[in-house]
């Protein structure tokens, strides 16, 4: 990593991450809409699905992950929109470091925002939809982190790609969902297994699959990201 005479790679990553956090703390452009939308989604699920006497438990793993990904697209789609509007992508690319720092910086900031969001939205869904939390906490947190990392890895890459199309960030869910299907399967199955739905011994297998998916797509993104940033 890093061309000769380049400034360090990690300092660039942390500078970009710090910039994202500061910019978000001042504008509230992506986290606040995500958080409000999280509340809205739970309400919609409540009115749309929670009929009297019907338990949502059997479909709950699916609900958590579908809502998390949909809410997540709201924020992750904006990863590069701001840079494009302010014409700052050229500035980011002028830094004499390997351009993968842009991907890693954005990925880490997206992960931070998504984790903060999930810390609110997931307990909220358990509470408001009346599903008892019976999973062992640590493996459950692991599934949430791995499922979110896969989502963020693919989402950050394709968000950069979507920004450069005529449709812009609206295209992101269209591009990302087909690619994310293995992550959705893995995350939902692992969550179901941990909540005692289906085979209770299945979750380590799915955690392994999610981890492999994450590693694969972070690696692929690091290789191809530079080609997206050219224009």
């Amino acid at each position: 990593m890093g061309a000769a005479g380049a400034v360090g790679w990690w300092p660039q990553v942390s500078a970009l991450l710090w910039k994202e956090l500061r910019s978000e703390s001042r504008t509230h452009d992506s986290f606040t809409p995500m958080l409000v939308f999280a509340f809205t989604v739970v309400t919609v699920f409540g009115f749309g699905l929670k009929l009297a006497g019907v338990s949502l438990r059997p479909v709950f793993p699916g609900l958590i992950w579908i809502s998390t990904y949909f809410i997540g697209f709201l924020g992750i789609g904006r990863s590069f929109a701001g840079e494009k509007a302010q014409d700052t992508l050229a500035g980011l690319r002028l830094v004499p470091a390997d351009p993968s720092y842009i991907y890693v910086g954005k990925l880490l900031s997206n992960l931070l925002f998504l984790s903060a969001l999930e810390a609110v939205s997931i307990p909220l869904q358990f509470a408001l939809l009346g599903v008892e939390f019976t999973a062992p906490l640590l493996p459950f947190a692991g599934v949430v982190i791995l499922g979110t990392t896969g989502f963020a890895a693919v989402g950050t890459l394709l968000s950069g790609l979507a920004t450069h199309t005529r449709a812009g960030e609206i295209l992101l869910p269209v591009l990302a969902f087909p690619v994310l299907i293995p992550a959705i399967i893995g995350a939902v199955q692992a969550t179901a297994s941990l909540l005692g739905l289906g085979n209770a011994l299945d979750w380590p297998k799915w955690i392994g699959m999610l981890a492999a998916y994450d590693v694969l797509f972070v690696a692929v993104s690091l290789v191809v990201f530079d080609f997206i940033m050219e224009s």
Partner: peptide, 12 residues
């Protein structure tokens, strides 16, 4: 360029 990137991601 962009469709090549997506073509690679999809195939992987």
């Amino acid at each position: 360029r962009l469709s090549a990137v997506f073509g690679i991601v999809a195939f992987v």
